[in-house]
Computed example of a mutant assay.
Amino acid sequence: MRIATWNVNSARARVDRIGAWLDRSDVDVLAIQETKARDDQFPASVFTDRGYEVAHHGLSQWNGVAIASRVGLEDVRVGFPGQPGYGDPEESEARAVGATCGGVQVWSLYVPNGREVDHPHYAYKLRWLKALREAGAARLAQAPDAQIAYVGDFNIAPQDDDVWDMAAFEGSTHVTAPERAAFEELVGAGFREVVREHTPGPGVYTYWDYKGLAFPKRRGMRIDFVLASPALASRVSGASIDREERKGKGASDHAPVIVGLDGNDGASVAKVKEAGA
């Protein structure tokens, strides 16, 4: 089985590219983030026409998450236990949807950006990550053999070589100690990040800004991840980042990340073979 995650930066704007990528990547499960659509606006047919079942959670033109699966889509859940909202009073945001696909509980996650270190959104981001860790730890305590995948755009670069130049990010979100600690606490709760060992850096990224020719200049960030529970991590046999999908007209600013399970190497049409490839 092959599981992928992809921040598409608007499902409606990217619908043709999504369909073409599904055709050539042949993944079994695709978790997507930043659909930027209400449920009634989401282009579900790009999935259903190809034999995928799909669950989408979208409340407005912002955020939005979905899971498409051709190996079953059961026990769909909107939001994880304890997931906080944003604002005063708090309002729910479409940042998490889960479903069981081929025996694996897949969560498509769009972690809050944080905006600026002194912004209320930054504190919200840390609360959100703490709640996710608590929910994950509770689930593993209840069912240690559960196969769980937390996948998506985490909006955190956990290591210095996950950004093209640390000096350029001085004082910015995504690289601060509290954010990195929150990511490590997820790992400490029992979830292993399973992509990096198959796509080692430095210079291997999943996101490149649209501005300043960031992509051709290789000025990117690694912020999209697959965190697997112990029972699932033991099944991972390969992973890749489809950097080719960031090229060309109408591309998302993120590349798909693919993980293969049980003998499938997770290779995409453009598997990263070396740092900076």
Results as ranks from 00 to 15, higher is better:
P178H: 13
A138N: 04
V187S: 08
A214Q: 00
R219L: 01
R180L: 11
Y150P: 01
E179S: 14
V204Q: 02
D209Q: 03
A149C: 13
T199Y: 03
D162M: 04
Q142H: 13
H174D: 04
F215W: 01
L186H: 05
R133W: 04
V204E: 02
V187M: 13
D153T: 09
E179T: 12
D209I: 02
H198S: 02
D153A: 12
L140E: 09
F215V: 05
E134M: 07
F154D: 03
D153C: 12
E185F: 04
R180T: 12
H198V: 00
T199A: 14
A214N: 01
W164N: 08
D145W: 01
R180Q: 10
Y150T: 07
H198N: 02
V195R: 02
G220L: 01
E170Y: 11
F154P: 04
G190M: 09
G203V: 03
D162I: 01
P144W: 11
D145I: 03
G188I: 11
A182Y: 05
A138W: 03
E179P: 04
A137V: 11
P144K: 05
P200C: 03
A138E: 03
T206F: 01
P200L: 00
K211F: 01
L186D: 01
E179H: 12
G171C: 12
F215K: 03
Q147P: 04
K217Q: 09
V194P: 07
A149G: 10
W164A: 08
A189V: 10
E185M: 08
R218H: 14
V151S: 10
G201E: 00
Q142S: 14
A143H: 14
R219F: 03
P178N: 13
G201T: 00
D145T: 14
T176E: 13
A182L: 09
A177C: 09
A137Q: 13
P216W: 10
Y210E: 05
G136W: 07
A143R: 15
P144C: 11
T173Q: 06
G212S: 04
D162T: 08
G190N: 10
A141I: 00
P144M: 10
L140P: 10
P200Y: 10
V187H: 13
E170P: 09
E193H: 08
A181I: 03
L186R: 06
D161T: 11
Y210A: 06
A181Y: 02
D153K: 04
W208D: 02
A189L: 08
Y210K: 04
F183A: 06
A135R: 11
T199E: 05
L213R: 13
P158T: 03
E184W: 12
Y150F: 15
N155G: 10
G136F: 07
T173N: 11
P202C: 01
A177D: 15
R192T: 14
A138K: 05
F183Q: 05
W164V: 00
Y205W: 02
D162S: 07
V204Y: 01
Q142N: 10
R139A: 15
